[in-house]
Write a protein that binds this DNA or RNA. Structure first.
Lengths: 245, 245
DNA sequence: GCCACAATTGGCCGAACGGCCAACCATTGT
DNA sequence: ACAATGGTTGGCCGTTCGGCCAATTGTGGC
């Protein structure tokens, strides 16, 4: 490996601070995602990165700064991939199915993204100081980050647009529709293991992800389809529709 | 408070081991639910319970045993309340709406139950020893615990029954239908704050719980209603139903 | 060659953790 | 009245945590 002990243009030699930084970031991201902030020690991160704890502290200053750095890099990276996956679906004709499928596939391919969400909650639960730390983080004007920020409003607007066009039932709050879809897709990836435990069924079989997706998608498509007959809005105490006895 | 310094029948005096035990359990349950297993110290539990750490260790042996005791007591208590709330709905005519409403209300009234589920995951993530510890815990034959254990199968059976009766569409796997409902109801209570953060909307307003419930319920009822026209099963690549252009 | 600087190292600190132990003391059976 | 039991206490142990510092080493500019 130490082929070029002295190269000013390509410092691939024994000392490579940039690569070391990246290795620390990668190790930290993997461990933070799996074990959360409190459950991961700086020593553990350093060991996986092949460096000493002091070096971690040298590069990032503190454990919290390292966590924020991980969050920032991951967010930027994930935002790009999520944008590539989901953005084309927003303006699609088959908006609901394509968007749900894209988001579902994205979560399946990036489980760390899901776990980072939980880890962030635990991190923020540490107190107001951490919230302030996160709030003081400068928001880059990256296009991918903008997408991550604007996506909910765009999706909600698209739902409302489809409602006005009569292609989705218009008696539901678009924001709450999005919330429902979010719960369906995200909770599956977040708590599938727990779900299988409680159901007493094995939810790890091959294709189970796709089978759940198709089931949820089918319920969504049918549940959001515009009604031909008139129906009470669900604001009050709506009666049961299908299995009404 | 120390009214009876010497009472053999009612030891409400300064020494009341049973009451002390309950106080420790209550403190531990509250703190474990809010901060998880690793995030809660024995000293913190002891402080809240008004005793010393040694006394906690004396009564429960170890922190893990205390956690299991909390889990056991909480599970028994919650199983009873959940059974009272949900069991009547299973055999109800309006099965879907009543069951979802009951479970939704239960989760809203017992947020610790939700958080305990996450905490249990983190606890079990500690290693195989803890999993073995939990597996070796004797399962009491309490009627409430039996309900907690049997409920998923009963609900799945009920869904299948309604499918056979033609009151729910029969092209979906009942277990996956239950999984979808579970995701909808549980994730709302588990991640509502995170959801609001990402949506950039305030999801804490009064009645937001009920409004989401009615929206999700409406989607579910419509999405699970039997179709009059024939429809492709969702196994393949089903096209969008309502908004198909 | 030499020096300044950054990367990297091992070691040390105070604090908090969970667990353990000897002692104190209220209650109880005899 | 006495001893035994067990609830209760403060204190001590080893470990691990995150953070800090001095020293060493590799690297590039002069």
């Amino acid at each position: 490996m130490p082929r070029k002990p002295q190269g000013p243009c390509q410092p691939v030699a024994r000392r490579d601070p940039a690569a070391t930084r990246q290795r620390i970031l990668a190790a930290a991201r993997s461990l933070f995602a799996r074990q959360g902030f409190d459950g991961t020690g700086v020593r553990q991160i350093a060991h996986r990165a092949g460096v000493t704890r002091s070096l971690v502290h040298h590069h990032f200053g503190s454990k919290e700064s390292l966590y924020l750095a991980v969050l920032e890099r991951s967010e930027a990276e994930w935002a790009g991939r999520l944008r590539e996956a989901v953005e084309p679906a927003i303006d699609s004709e088959e908006f609901v199915t394509e968007a749900v499928r894209a988001y579902h596939r994205f979560l399946g391919e990036h489980p760390d993204f899901v776990r980072m969400g939980e880890g962030l909650d635990l991190f923020l639960a540490g107190g107001a100081d951490r919230r302030r730390l996160l709030a003081g983080r400068p928001r880059p004007e990256d296009r991918n980050e903008r997408f991550l920020h604007d996506a909910p409003d765009r999706v909600i607007g698209r739902i409302a647009e489809l409602q006005r066009q009569g292609r989705l039932r218009d008696d539901l709050d678009p924001a709450l529709v999005l919330a429902a879809v979010w719960c369906l897709v995200e909770h599956w990836h977040e708590a599938r293991d727990r779900l299988g435990l409680r159901l007493g069924r094995d939810l790890d079989g091959p294709g189970i992800d796709d089978r759940f997706l198709e089931t949820a998608l089918s319920i969504l498509v049918e549940g959001l389809a515009p009604r031909t007959e008139n129906r009470r809005p669900p604001g009050g105490n709506g009666g049961q529709g299908g299995a009404d006895g």
